[in-house]
Design a protein around this nucleic acid. Structure first.
Length: 190
DNA sequence: TTATGGATTAGCT
DNA sequence: GCTAATCCATAAA
């Protein structure tokens, strides 16, 4: 994963992350999964983005350098994980993974035995991978959390984003066509 | 200082 | 399909 990867437009990064491998080397063990579903959040131009109203203490990682993590807490109980791009306030939400390594550890963290649902949904990804708020703002260029390039060029489907109340019609969700680990088969709700 | 609502999930109807 | 669970950043006063 070279540095120039994240200077692409955020939508482009969101597409290119599909098929890549997210790897976490934790004290408990290694877990990894193929990114199968992402959403783009376009900062100052996007009412649905946390960065829409400008930089705040919470969203400041999104205004930092590309290739860093933005981890935020929401709904009183869940964390979500984003990859920041070089564009100020913009980031890509990782919505789902296809588990590859450390599946038994993921199952333990999730207290769930269902492989298909282990990393299905942004909060599930965070929990299964063992990502915490301590990762907010760190670089993904090396340990302990990183993204490894693969040569695969998966077929990509596009839909509206999920779970938001503003700019709900923007086609900014991307997923690997037909992949059973994608969180929602249908496009958007509400 | 107080109020609001959220880039969700799981479980029940 | 509907809703409870449950914290906290941001907005409003």
């Amino acid at each position: 994963m070279d540095k120039t990867y994240f200077d692409q437009p955020t939508v482009e990064v969101a597409k290119r992350l599909l098929g890549q491998l997210l790897v976490h080397r934790s004290p408990e063990g290694l877990t990894s999964g193929i990114i199968v579903e992402t959403e783009a959040y376009l900062g100052l131009n996007d009412p649905a983005s946390h960065a829409y109203r400008g930089q705040t203490p919470r969203n400041s990682p999104m205004f930092g350098p590309g290739g860093h993590a933005y981890v935020y807490f929401t709904y009183g109980m869940h964390y979500c994980f984003n990859v920041v791009t070089d564009y100020p306030g913009e980031a890509v939400l990782i919505r789902a993974l296809e588990p590859v390594e450390g599946i038994s550890l993921m199952k333990a963290r999730r207290e769930l035995d269902d492989l298909n649902r282990l990393c299905k949904g942004p909060a599930c990804v965070v929990k299964a991978m063992g990502i915490t708020k301590e990762y907010n703002g760190i670089s993904l260029a090396g340990e302990p959390l990183t993204i490894e390039s693969t040569d695969v060029m998966p077929p990509i489907s596009i839909s509206k984003r999920i779970g938001i109340s503003k700019a709900i019609d923007e086609p900014l969700r991307f997923y690997i066509s037909g992949n059973p680990f994608v969180s929602k088969l249908k496009a958007s709700r509400k």
